[in-house]
Design a protein around this nucleic acid. Sequence first.
DNA 1: TCTAGCGGTCGAACA
DNA 2: GACCGCTAGA
Length: 672
Amino acid sequence: MDKYILSLNPAQKEAVTTTEGPLLVLAGAGSGKTRVITARSAYLIYKGVPSASIVAVTFTNRAAREMRERITALLRKSRSNPPTVSTFHSLCLQILRKEMKHIGLRKNFTIYSASEQAALLKNLLLDISVYNKQFKPEVILERIGRLKNSFTSPEDMDSTEDDPLSIIVARAYPEYQKTLRTMNAVDFDDLLLLVIELFRKVPGILDEYRERFRYIMVDEYQDTNRVQYTLLKLLAGKRKNLCVVGDDDQSVYSWRGANLGNILDFEDDFKGTKVIRLEQNYRSMGNILEAANSLITKNSRRMEKSLWTSEGAGPTIKIMKALDGEGEAVFVVSKILHLINSKKLSCEDFAIIYRANVFSRLFEVELRRKKIPYTVIGGTSYFDRKEVKDLAAYMKIILNRYDDVNLLRIANLPRRGIGITSIGKLHDHAGNKNIPLIDAFSNASGMEGINEKTASKADALANMLKRYRSAFLKGKGMAKLLSGLIEEIGFHEHIRNFYKTDDVAVKRIDNVNAFVESLKYYEENEKSPSLQGFIETLALDDKPEKEQEKSGVTLVSLHSSKGLEFPVVFIVGVEEDMIPHSKSLDDEGGLEEERRLMYVGITRAMRELFLTYTACRIKYGTKTVSSPSQFIAEMPDEIIEHIETECADEEASAEEIDIKEEYEKVMAILNS
DNA sequence: TCTAGCGGTCGAACA
DNA sequence: GACCGCTAGA
Ligand SMILES: Nc1ncnc2c1ncn2[C@@H]1O[C@H](COP(=O)(O)OP(=O)(O)OP(=O)(O)O)[C@@H](O)[C@H]1O
């Protein structure tokens, strides 16, 4: 520990040893902000503060996991437990699970993912007959989310707006909240909002948590929203031992309500705040830093900060134009191979960073072709696969019998003779009688418009789910149970029917098996495993350590790359309409946020940075001409170098023919 | 009630 | 290109 403290610079040291009162660490990329939080946590414990009194909040579960590991390593000698390190959402979920009775949530409530939210909203719009194809559920959800995150309850909604979308939102929002509660479900926003509601309603509980979390630290503070801010303010209470670190230039989540005001006004909101600036960058070589600095100064709305490095200039920044998306992938991967061989770098030293997750595919194909291992962060994981989501839906309705959305999903999957019309009738019946859908299934016999055969099928389904419910809730041998369920519903046959070709079906079945495996893994590695716990893991994307193998080249979106670092970084698809994204430009301040995103990407690089773009790209199935991003021109000419690609890799042209073939093969694997 | 096939659409990022 | 919703026909 002492040694670690010594390795900090004076400004960092001051931040670490200022343990009481509000503290704002404001600093640019790579200046050691995260390290301050890690060191400060360890320092507090070292000074005798119980670990249980400390909470550090990070933005992603991945970041939380890494920080926990680092702190644990620092504490090795003292044999203390690590403090709570968690995201806002996980932290709030933990609180809600314990205190749910105070705010009317029932046991085993479900967290709805984006697609479940959309399914719920769509059903409900149809029910109250305001469904309008023009306004997609996602658009309405975004508006609802914005209302929720500005603490606008359905009651105090401004009803003076009369454009069609606002009218629909006004009708949908109250229903949406009501339906979530009847289904004993919450969305991501609710996790935080309900905790705030709880704290306001039951001050005793708030006091309890204030006593418990005496020291609060927040990483990536620039990306917190009003709700998160409110939560922090409540928790910090009079003690105000709140330490936040952030960089206004790295605020890239305005679409989730991130509010720069939180960081800009921190000093006003917390009187007596100590502000510490860190100015030395320990991550990047000079040229990289210069490119980042000169880009970001094009933004008008920012806090002045300086950032320097004691490192040399290092290599120039390489800009590369490829013919098309595939050419870009071929170039990047051959460059990686080349650097691995010539500079003794390992795969883990490389990252390929893109604006949109779809980009990962092209690179995955090429990496596989060259047999280079890689890890994709974010995007659609195999937990998002249809067959996995179907099984998860079974588990969710088993866990929470009010979860109509997931019951609807699996009611006739695999086909069991309960068709759309019957489901519609059952749904209406449940709605009229105010009972959960599953009860309508059990009482289907004799219901108008439902024939006996269907009724008995519905009843059988309800019974089966009930049977599994009592078995699963024991929390033991769940993987076996799931296998049994898969068998009983004939899921494998269903998949074989559904996907005509053997190849694809086999892959899908592999996914199913992998899902069973991950449940098994969870059971074996969790102190007190439960169905609920496993499902939460899925919802919060909080996978256990070992399952998250982090080896090989990293593929990651610009957003998720925040906080990471790599010796060599490729930012790909650096094109107009991509970065800046065409859809971002309508928003107020959209261009500046895109520039910050680019800034985040650039500053991930330690030694070498490549930016690539294409001459044309396939968009929505048609070839479109692309042009380099305006951000490229915003970097000083002296430090950039344009390099040629055509024939950069001699093999490439010779292998051209193979590529097509292998491409198809690999795509088939990836798609399954 | 289910399936195949067609046509329209396309707003990315995350817990 | 991929996904969704609709329609025709079994
Ligand atoms: N005092 C120091 N001496 C040497 N290296 C340091 C020091 N502080 C931090 N570093 C190193 O600098 C790099 C960046 O640190 P860190 O991730 O904490 O920065 P950050 O400000 O959180 O960056 P970002 O905002 O870009 O996420 C890390 O590799 C870290 O180990």
